[in-house]
Nucleic acid binder design. Structure first.
Lengths: 247, 247
DNA sequence: ATTTCCACTTGATCTCTGTCAAAGTCGCTA
DNA sequence: TAGCGACTTTGACAGAGATCAAGTGGAAAT
């Protein structure tokens, strides 16, 4: 509700993700068409936005908050396969049912488009199709980056990798200076981190404690993280010092 | 050489991947334009097709054989992040340098397009851009499917998952009957399997021996695999019996 | 103020997979 | 035919991370 109030405009002018979302390259005419088929929806932290296997009636963009894509096996093992940040796109044009659960990790606002009209619009609007291709290629890179983390990194390196991704994202959003300590709040519970990293929550907790003990990070409370030396963290993550992470 | 001989035609009519590759939806005019910028290249098993970090002068499609995308950490740990089968696309329009090593796992023939002209053509040809989007979305699904394998499955389940993917692909290519035993040759060494699965080659070997001992598979030589009961294998892989694997 | 709850931390133990080492198999070359 | 080399299997052992089990701390509720 409080969240919704921040974004209850009905046009795209003041949209905080206007320049990064699937509509980034649209001209005024195209935006107007999009406005005709769009609507906003809010979700509370913990809510499931889309269930795996559901009919998908809409596609859309995350406007604010963080959502996650997860897969679950019959016996309950779950793996997060994507982290959706503001401007990221949800849904696949040309597919009927959702392949993954989409969950709101924090409170989330989405800009939704009715699926059928969006597909039509995409076919007639190269700007949208082209931008969606770019974004999908970026996501594919991120997924492959993550395969290395899941397949080959140690628990400590996995935690360091996740922290450096979150830190980097925060830095890129707030345009902060490269040097000096980086400070942010973890948007994920220990359990969500474990599901992302292919670990148990106990191991996540232990490794965070270890990184704290070794002064790679410091914590106030459970979630507020300070990184005194980003290069040190990236070293712990096993990446070459200004490596290829793109998120 | 013998491989090259199979595909030394210069037009697309007899192309074995014509209907599945990036050019699948092209009409005659568009194909003619593509023919103008294309050329074939052959690679021997083990050869590196593209080095990570290299300038990419071309993009293209795998015509025959199998190639792999791999990432390597400084200390030598490597993770395969994609398996490129005939019709799969290599390269990213709009990017200068290659993010991964591309290696020929078997002898490979590629249909290459000079990068710049291809990019231009893509901007003027919705058929190509649209097909590339479809293919990229499929690859993203495959990558995410694989994240579950890497993050949450046991060694035995990983092996079973890989075997069932290869079996499925073979079945889809040769249009074989669903029931009855499935037979194929493993296109990967134990080491390549290990790199794909985030395991060591010793563990791969042990788990294959275990699956053989338990009659889930049988082997002639090291590479020739028979799967008497596909449902059983999928069960070992931890997938729901006709699960979501798409490759 | 006290209780309750939830996310988190920490400890003890177990087990799966990695590591190190040796030996086996197969195809190819001399 | 022997011998070499690449690939694979198998064994013994060690260790990282999982599992099982308490226990802590802070915020909301009573």
């Amino acid at each position: 509700m409080t969240v919704k109030a921040q974004f209850d405009h009905t046009n795209c002018d003041g949209c905080p993700i206007r320049h990064r979302a699937v509509c980034a390259h649209c001209d005024t005419d195209e935006l107007e068409e999009l406005e005709g088929i769009k609507y906003y929806r809010s979700f509370e932290a913990g809510q499931t936005i889309i269930w795996s296997g559901d009919q998908m009636s809409f596609v859309g963009s995350v406007v604010s908050g963080i959502a996650s894509l997860t897969q679950t096996m019959e016996d309950g093992r779950t793996q997060m396969v994507g982290l959706l940040l503001p401007s990221d796109f949800v849904g696949r044009p040309g597919r009927e049912t959702a392949p993954y659960d989409v969950q709101a990790t924090t409170d989330v606002v989405m800009c939704c488009f009715r699926k059928k009209p969006f597909e039509d619009l995409m076919n007639s609007t190269p700007h949208i199709a082209h931008r969606l291709l770019q974004m999908t290629l970026d996501e594919l890179d991120a997924a492959r980056e993550w395969m290395l983390v899941l397949g080959r990194k140690t628990a400590r390196e996995k935690i360091a990798s996740l922290l450096s991704i979150i830190a980097r994202r925060d830095a890129s959003v707030s345009q902060k200076v490269q040097s000096g300590p980086i400070v942010f709040d973890l948007p994920l519970t220990r359990e969500a981190m474990a599901d992302y990293l292919g670990l148990t929550l106990e191991t996540v907790s232990r490794q965070i404690s270890a990184l704290k003990r070794d002064s790679v990070i410091s914590l106030e409370g459970k979630r507020h993280v300070t990184i005194p030396d980003m290069a040190r963290l990236m070293d712990e993550a096993g990446d070459d010092s200004d490596g290829g992470f793109l998120i």
